[in-house]
Computed example of a mutant assay.
Amino acid sequence: MLPAADERRLFEELQELLAATVEDLSTQEVRLDSSLKDDLGVDSLALLELVAAIEDKWQIQVPMEEAEQLGTVRQIITHLGTVTTPAGEAS
């Protein structure tokens, strides 16, 4: 489990990334338990763009099979917490 400060930092960074990636989405609309598809309107193309942006920002690889299993903002944060160091760099 991530320390609260790390989870908050990842959440804020992910809010910005989602707002920059998904058309007509603001950071205020992104909640920790938001469903990517149902709440945020992330379709298959937006998911590809989001995965590419996550890979670029955190210098990690996210196989599409894994990406398709990440249905909420919280699930992405949990995944990032397992593959990044507290400094936010790839482990």
Rank of each mutant, 00 (worst) to 15 (best):
D33R: 12
E13Y: 05
L70S: 05
D56L: 08
T72W: 02
L50V: 04
E66N: 13
D24T: 14
T21E: 02
A46E: 05
T27F: 02
Q61Y: 12
S26K: 14
I76N: 01
D39V: 06
V30F: 02
G88L: 14
R9N: 06
S35P: 00
G41E: 11
L80N: 11
D33F: 05
I60H: 08
A20Q: 15
L2T: 10
M64I: 15
E16P: 03
E23N: 09
G81P: 06
Q15G: 05
I54C: 09
E49V: 01
V73N: 00
V51N: 07
R31E: 14
S91Q: 11
L17Q: 02
S91G: 08
D56E: 12
S91R: 12
L14K: 01
I76P: 00
I54R: 05
G88E: 14
E12A: 12
S35L: 07
S26P: 04
V22G: 00
A52D: 14
L10T: 03
E49W: 02
A5T: 06
L17M: 11
T85I: 06
V42R: 00
A4H: 12
G41F: 04
E49I: 02
V22M: 00
A87C: 13
A87Y: 13
F11T: 07
L45C: 03
E55D: 13
L25E: 03
T78Y: 05
S26R: 14
Q61L: 13
S34N: 03
G81M: 08
E55V: 10
A20I: 07
I60M: 09
V30A: 04
T84A: 12
R31A: 15
E49G: 05
S26Y: 10
T72N: 03
F11A: 05
R8V: 06
G71K: 15
L17E: 01
E23D: 09
L80F: 12
Q69W: 07
G81Y: 07
E16W: 11
F11P: 01
T78L: 08
L36A: 01
E16K: 15
L48Y: 01
K37Y: 03
I76L: 07
L47P: 00
I54F: 06
S34Q: 04
P3L: 12
T82I: 06
D39T: 10
S34R: 02
G41A: 13
M64W: 09
E23M: 06
